[in-house]
Design a protein around this nucleic acid. Structure first.
Length: 835
RNA sequence: GCCCGAGUGGCGGAAUGGCAGACGCGCUCGACUCAAAAUCGAGUGCCCAAAAGGCAUGUGGGUUCGAGUCCCUCCUCGGGCACCA
């Protein structure tokens, strides 16, 4: 499909992209350099994973938004840091390498080249001198260095941990790399079955920061739903641990968030993996318990947590003593069960079951005929005479509960905790859902751990020996025995007769945990970042604006916050949080309104779009589609519309000689002074575009630019010229959105480059005031007439003027006036009733 | 099941509690053209032949002189979490 070019964008765009690159127009000034006396603004994109598929139309959406903000802030006098780089370690490249035989390093180099070319073709104002890849040896060095700081802080440790292992891929996978299917859990890549294996793993103690990661969400300006997702993920719950004595002499400790229901505990449940299960089980129950525990071990987590499943469990034969009852009270002795609805990995791996006030316990008790005792009544209700008819998990008033009977739930919790603590039978306790971070992968294409093994002990590599780079392998497939690929490099692994290297590598998240800091000082060989530069760019709360997809709401953003806090604690960074403000861009759907995918055949390729319509049209359209945060479908017709708009701007400003190709400013642009209408329109546009940019409402800002063009063309058709000063201000407003066209028009109007460094125009109040305003006149809320009055006319006068209108006076005459409301500058409403 | 977010023309969307539908797409008509494309101009929520008028922001209620906007009910869609005691 051949579309005629509406204006010469290919030539213009290529030329200005070259100009910006050659002149380093967007170089950010570091402290001490000229320009750094301006206020700083750090605007960051989530850097891409350069896959073999090339850039997707989703990438440039966020990148365009940040680029518009970066360009706008520069024009507003800020020293802007706007960098780009590559998050290039990881499984996709490694799988590609295995399939094609191309070394991951080479595949990465090619992919980065493609991404860089595609991103540059969109004219983003990045400071390319700061570009790096997480795979660069120099960057790996500092990633490993930061790992060593965590290691020294006792935040990295080795443990045997259950992981998803994929026999086909030969590697362990992160939870997020595994998807649940009807055929059981499978690998996201390749769709192979995966299984649970316990492997020796590196873990990071993120749980030590759980509380601060939760609390400090209050310090950041993020979308509320993202904060909520992090809060849920961290999952803080306050409650108590309670010790129940058993016949063994050992107490079994349970965790509960409802210690006020302790008097209603009618049985206890241990997770199948609970260490006391074998010792507690009585001889006559041993067979059943062992069979149950073995069956549970074979199940995956997903099978075990499937809600549709009926609850299962077996009685151990043992009993526990509830500490809240006095000796000899028959209610004190409760049976101990084993059931897989209790998780070994949360709390103490054991619970007290209160079926009357917990849905899960209720279901279990009903199924196995266990006792149910009501100990909380809904406010205003009275206790059930016998067994309660249904579960009541809410808060209420304690009943049948000894010393706390009659107390509301909150108070009952406090009192019972005091009581438990005084007697040494329990204690207040906070638990988190957040688990420590499984930090090793059995891959080749990642950062090796800077760790040696000597006599079964791990020792850190000296900092001067960094970086530890992956050895050059020809075969980076996993080893047949399930050890990581690096284990093949025997020369590399065996450092000396008694020392070997760690062969796991770090997950892909490691590099993205601190890249925003390296942009500040990307070439520093003595430190991961210079402290003075760090203070300058991160000093007041970190990155000023961070834009990326909501799919990183929890993992990347939580991991990066964790590393940042560790660095903050050891005095290496100056803000407690890395990203002060966060925005998630929406997803761009295919033209059919479905998610873009190769299999649906609805993928839009940015290269093709840029070829046909140009980068400015592409940028403008992505922003014009709708609010940044919203998901919206791509429309080829839609991009034609904004393309036509840019062509209209071109024709409005430029006259081209068809024969010679010579271009000059349109003759309608004159040095005549602007008239009042010109100035009112211009300043209204400046005000609207400025306000919308401050609020990141790009779609309505663009619509204001369109309104200016429409009005100006209408005036031009009536013979009115465009004053040069007005034209120049319009081009400034256009510059952040369509920077190539704006530069070209700027130069054509005789200005010297670059418009990117020009000051932003200011809206002057005196041109924003309307002389006359239209007042809507309503009767019973319906518009019946209008009138025009001078701005600032007081309500009484508006009221009087409205009554004088023939239509209105006629209506008022025939009826009874109940009320009149006059809003200055807006409307009058007469409320009437029939006589 | 629980927690968020969203429902507005044929479509994307716009509207400090004050004229619903800015801007754009599409469509209709006209100008230019041998013709088409491009461009320019006019129109375009629905009902009614038109005007007058009426009806319209997922549903049903409420607050208000006045509700797309605030409150409650329900429905639908999208996202997240999911036996975390």
């Amino acid at each position: 499909m051949e579309t005629r070019r509406a204006y010469p964008f290919p030539e213009i765009e290529a030329r200005w992209q070259r100009h910006w690159l050659e002149n380093k127009t967007f170089r950010a000034a570091d402290p001490g350099e000229s320009g750094s006396e301006r206020p700083k603004f750090y605007v960051l994109d989530m850097f891409p994973y350069p896959s073999g598929a090339g850039l997707h139309v989703g990438h440039p959406e966020g990148y365009t938004a940040t680029d518009i903000v970066a360009r706008y802030k520069r024009m507003r006098g800020f020293n802007v840091l706007h960098p780009m780089g590559w998050d290039a370690f990881g499984l996709p490249t490694e799988r590609y390498a295995i399939q094609t035989g191309i070394h991951p390093r080479e595949a990465t180099r090619r992919n980065i080249e493609t991404f860089r070319r595609q991103i540059r073709a969109l004219g983003f104002s990045y400071d390319w001198d700061r570009e790096f890849s997480t795979t660069d040896p120099d960057y790996v060095r500092w990633t490993q260095w930061i790992f060593l700081q965590l290691y020294r802080q006792g935040l990295a440790y080795v443990a045997d941990a259950p992981v998803w292992f994929c026999p086909a891929l030969g590697t362990g996978l992160a939870n997020e790399e595994v998807i649940n299917t009807p055929d059981g859990p499978r690998s996201e890549r390749g769709d192979h079955p995966v299984e649970r294996r316990t492997l020796r793993q590196w873990m990071l103690r993120i749980t030590a920061y759980a509380d601060r990661l939760l609390r400090d969400l209050e310090l950041v300006d993020w979308p509320e739903n993202i904060k909520e997702m992090q809060r849920n993920w961290i999952g803080r719950s306050e409650g108590a641990e309670v010790d129940f004595r058993t016949a063994l002499g050992d107490a079994v400790t349970v965790f509960t968030t409802r210690p006020d229901t302790l008097f209603g505990a009618t049985y206890m449940v241990l997770a199948p993996e609970h260490p006391l299960v074998p010792a507690l089980t009585t001889p006559d129950q041993r067979g059943a318990v062992e069979a149950y525990v073995a069956a549970a071990a074979r199940k995956t987590d997903i099978e075990r947590t499937d809600l549709a499943r009926e609850k299962t469990g077996v009685f151990t034969g043992a009993h526990a003593i509830n500490p809240v009852f006095s000796d000899g009270d028959p209610r004190a002795r409760i049976p101990i069960w084993v059931a897989d609805y209790v998780l070994a990995t949360y709390g103490t791996g054991a619970i007290m079951a209160v079926p009357a006030h917990d849905e899960r316990d209720w279901e279990f008790a009903e199924k196995f005929g266990l006792e149910i005792v009501e100990v909380v009544v809904a406010p205003g209700a009275s206790p059930s005479p016998g067994r309660p008819a249904q579960c009541f998990p809410g808060e209420g008033i304690a009943a049948h509960s000894g010393p706390i009977t009659g107390l509301p739930t909150a108070e009952a919790k406090e009192r019972i905790c005091d009581w438990l603590e005084q007697r040494g039978a329990g204690r207040r306790r906070v638990n988190y859902k957040l688990r420590d971070w499984l930090f090793s992968r059995q891959l080749y294409w990642g950062e090796p751990f800077p760790i040696l093994w000597r006599g079964g002990e791990h020792v850190p590599v000296g900092e001067s020996e960094l970086p530890i780079l992956p050895p050059d392998l020809d075969d980076f497939k996993p080893t047949p025995d399930g050890r990581p690929p690096l284990a093949r490099a025997t020369d590399w692994v065996q450092v000396d007769p008694r020392t070997t290297r760690e062969t796991n590598v770090m997950p892909n998240w490691a590099g993205s945990c601190w890249y925003y800091l390296r942009y500040i000082d990307p070439k520093n060989e003595r430190a991961f970042v210079d402290p003075a530069k760090e203070r300058y760019w991160m000093g007041d709360g970190g990155v000023d604006l961070y834009v990326g997809g909501a799919e990183h709401a929890v993992l990347h953003l939580l991991y990066a916050r964790f590393w940042h806090k560790v660095l903050f604690d050891i005095g290496l960074v100056s803000s407690p949080e890395p990203f002060r403000r966060l925005i998630n861009q929406g997803i761009i759907l295919g033209e059919d309104g479905q998610k873009m995918s190769k299999s649906r055949g609805n993928v839009i390729n940015p290269d093709v779009v840029v070829d046909e319509f140009g980068a400015d049209s592409f940028r403008l359209y992505e922003m014009f589609m709708g609010p940044l945060e919203q998901s919206k479908p791509w429309s080829t017709q839609g991009i034609k519309g904004v393309h036509a708009f840019l062509a209209r701007v071109w024709r409005l400003f430029v006259r081209e000689d068809d024969e010679t190709g010579r271009r000059e400013p349109s003759p309608s642009i004159t040095d005549a002074g602007p008239c009042d209408d010109d100035l009112r329109l211009l300043h209204r546009t400046i005000r609207k575009v400025t306000d919308d940019l401050d609020g990141m409402r790009f779609n309505t800002a663009i619509s204001a630019l369109m309104v200016w063009v429409n009005e100006t063309m209408k005036a031009g058709a009536g013979g009115r010229p465009i004053p040069r000063a007005v034209a120049l201000d319009f081009v400034r407003l256009l510059a952040p959105f369509a920077p190539h066209l704006a530069e070209e028009l700027w130069a054509l109007l005789g200005q010297s480059p670059s418009i990117a460094l020009q000051p932003w125009p200011a809206a002057e109040e005196k041109y924003l005031k309307e002389e006359n305003v239209e007042i809507v006149v309503q009767i019973n809320g319906k518009v019946r007439d209008r009138l025009s009055v001078p701005a600032g006319t007081p309500p009484e006068e508006i009221d009087a003027a409205a009554r004088a209108l023939p239509k209105i006076s006629a209506a008022l005459e025939g009826s009874r006036l109940i009320k009149a409301v006059a809003v200055p500058g807006r409307l009058v409403n007469f409320v009437i009733a029939p006589k």
